[in-house]
Design a protein around this nucleic acid. Structure first.
Length: 271
DNA sequence: CAGCACTCCTGTTCGC
DNA sequence: TGCGAACAGGAGTGCT
């Protein structure tokens, strides 16, 4: 499932093929995504050049020459692939952006939790404006987390997965960074010390950076812009390892549900 | 406001 | 072997 590293990998992969390129058509084959793909998508993107490509949290933002911004989210199972030689669309290729250079950018998403939207005011768009800081910036640090966590009874795992706190930290990387920092996922956010938050921030940055270097985590669905999987899954220390030995202390990894999500942790190493 | 649970969806896995 | 149930989860929405 695409989290920040997978979205970053996707953005980097498509960038050379779409930046400064002009679109000839947006072919909507299935508009029924998380939110309906705008009816006027083709009309608005046709003949427009992609003048910048950015990632914000797990959103990919493509700025067009007519001041519109495409907002793309990969949801749970989405991918954006660059198709250089025209071939028949595959199942779940919901939107195909045709470029004038003959390349196609295909949005494929079996579970359709993703979205493709357009806005002429990206800064104030509802999905964007209330987002927390990017995790790989200095703005995201231990002090910041500690002060936000004040009086919060919420479990620390849910806290760091809240996009208003910090963007891009999904279930897998939340589990991994909490393990690396030795923090129990259920611990109340307010009861985590500043030192522990500093350690947690360091681990979040580390695990996200390493995952980007490995091309992302592919558990089942994720493929990059070339249709290839990422290789970080084999470096996961706790996620998906219920009952297996902790790499640190050899006791079995536990699984609990927190905020409707599976959480994996070591009872002995995380407090 | 804070903190949950619910919801969208399909492919895969599991139990009988 | 086949079938239905359970599970997976990003994140906005709505409820308590």
């Amino acid at each position: 499932m695409p989290e920040l590293p997978e979205v970053e990998i996707t953005k980097r992969g498509i960038e050379p093929w779409v930046l400064d390129k002009t679109m000839s058509q947006a072919e909507v084959r299935n508009s029924s995504l998380r939110w309906k793909v705008p009816d006027d998508l083709n009309q608005k993107v046709k003949s427009q050049k992609i003048v910048s490509l950015k990632r914000r949290g797990k959103y990919i933002l493509a700025e067009l020459s007519n001041q519109q911004n495409l907002i793309i989210h990969l949801g749970m199972s989405g991918s954006l692939r660059v198709i250089k030689n025209a071939q028949a669309p595959e199942k779940h290729d919901h939107v195909i952006f045709h470029l004038q250079n003959g390349v196609e950018l295909r949005f494929n998403d079996p579970r359709r939790f993703g979205c493709i939207l357009l806005t002429n005011d990206i800064q104030n768009h509802a999905l964007i404006k209330n987002m927390g800081p990017e995790p790989l910036t200095t703005e995201f640090n231990g002090q910041y987390l500690k002060s936000l966590a004040k009086n919060k009874t919420q479990a620390v795992k849910n806290f760091i997965m809240d996009g208003k706190v910090v963007v891009g930290v999904g279930n897998i990387y939340a589990c991994e960074s909490l393990f690396a920092a030795g923090i129990h996922p259920k611990r109340a956010a307010s009861k985590v010390s500043l030192q522990k938050y500093e350690q947690l921030v360091e681990e979040i940055k580390k695990v996200l950076s390493q995952a980007i270097e490995s091309g992302g985590t592919t558990l089942r669905d994720f493929v990059n812009s070339e249709g290839k999987p990422g290789y970080f899954a084999q470096q996961l220390k706790v996620y998906g390892r219920k009952g297996e030995d902790c790499f640190n202390c050899q006791s079995p990894i536990a699984q609990i549900t927190l905020g409707q999500r599976s959480s994996f942790y070591c009872k002995k190493c995380q407090h």
